[in-house]
């Protein structure tokens, strides 16, 4: 993968990397710069061209971490015939990669890469995982709920889970032997490796060493230090004689740290919380007002009808009265006429 100049990563919200003990988050949150790891933090350089697949590192890891002894002993190299991944009983595994055209076989060791901005830590909803200033990504089983979202999140498929523990399952993964580093010791695997395929030191220095090796032996290595930028960079760095995707290391992960993928939806929270209640109350008010207007119109309509009816009645009454008066007058006139006529007839008679 082409390693271009680091992209300009606008750091939006979300203090990321999920730790309280960090000394820099404020400065980082406010700047446009992307986190490059704690200054002076440690890492390991794994030069796969030097690895002989002896599995001594696996054994040492098992020993210093008190892991259960495996079904087949560590000196049984037939284990390498099948690809393996990390598990609750093995924080690190060495895999063997055959080649087709007479090229040498490659062995590569796999374990937590101790990302600079770990996906697992940003995913943990109870801060059980955090990036330590030594460079190690460490886990606190006393907080873990066992939701396994960290396993979903890890792009390298590293964290494993104690599926057979009914009530106290833990996430299990390499912790860079943080407890040994703090005592001034090397990580178990690095200490044991007979061929210096593993080198421990400050990440910045390791990066330089890696570059120097590539420059010095351009034919031996592909021109890429895996872990320099993958997923925002990792504390473990790798050199390989073959393209990394041929030794089961994904090259399509990109250079953005995982927290960048979720910063968008996280920053939408205040918008929803701030906007919705106002909008909804507004809609409520409008619908209420519409109801009210409708009601008023109904009342008015009724009132006008009543009023109209009244008017009509009045005119009718008036007409009636008129008519009645006229009729009565006519009647009286008639009566008078009749009386006069009668009187006249009497006079005649």
């Amino acid at each position: 993968m082409g390693v271009t100049r680091r992209k300009f990563l606008g750091w939006v919200g979300a203090a990321a990397v999920g730790t309280t003990s960090m000394m820099v988050p404020k400065a980082r949150a406010a700047s446009n710069k992307h986190f490059e790891g704690y200054p002076g933090s440690f890492g390991v350089l794994h030069d796969t061209t030097r690895c002989i697949g002896c599995r001594k590192c696996e054994e040492a890891c098992n020993r210093v971490n008190d892991l259960p002894s495996p079904a087949r002993p560590f000196d049984d190299l037939t284990v390498l015939e099948n690809p393996r991944r990390t598990s609750a009983a093995a924080f690190t595994v060495v895999n063997r990669f055959e080649s087709d055209a007479g090229e040498p076989v490659v062995f590569a060791k796999n374990q937590c890469n101790h990302c600079l901005e770990p996906a697992c830590a940003s995913a943990c909803f109870v801060r059980a995982l955090r990036k330590d200033k030594t460079g190690a990504v460490v886990y606190d089983a006393s907080l873990c709920v066992g939701c396994r979202y960290c396993m979903v999140a890890c792009p390298f498929n590293i964290p494993a889970y104690e599926y057979d523990e009914p009530l106290t399952p833990r996430i299990r993964k390499c912790h860079l032997c943080q407890f040994r580093i703090e005592k001034g010791l090397l990580p178990g695997c690095v200490e044991t490796c007979p061929t210096e395929a593993l080198a421990f030191g400050e990440r910045d220095r390791l990066l330089k060493i890696a570059r120097q090796r590539i420059d010095k032996f351009p034919g031996r290595y592909v021109d890429h230090v895996y872990g320099e930028r993958e997923m925002g960079g990792t504390s473990w760095l790798y050199l390989s004689p073959r393209p990394f995707n041929q030794i089961a290391m994904r090259e399509d992960l990109g250079v953005q740290p995982a927290s960048r993928f979720t910063s968008g939806p996280l920053s939408a929270v205040p918008i929803v919380v701030g906007l919705w209640p106002v909008l909804l109350t507004g809609i409520y008010a409008i619908s209420k007002r519409k109801d009210k207007i409708a009601q008023q119109e109904r009342i008015e309509a009724v009132a006008t009808t009543v009023a109209d009816a009244n008017d009509e009645m009045k005119t009718k009454m008036a007409e009636l009265k008129d008519k009645m008066t006229r009729e009565r007058e006519a009647m009286i006139n008639l009566e008078i006429k009749k009386a006069l006529k009668e009187a006249a007839e009497k006079e005649d008679a």
């Binding site: 979300a14 203090a15 990321a16 990397v17 999920g18 830590a121 940003s122 995913a123 943990c124 909803f125 109870v126 801060r127 059980a128 907080l143 939701c147 979202y149 927290s259 979720t262 939806p265 996280l266 929270v269």
Partner: peptide
């Protein structure tokens, strides 16, 4: 106890 506010699962 220990809110992991960077996580969507927390939300």
């Amino acid at each position: 106890l220990s809110p992991g506010t960077t996580s969507l699962l927390y939300e």
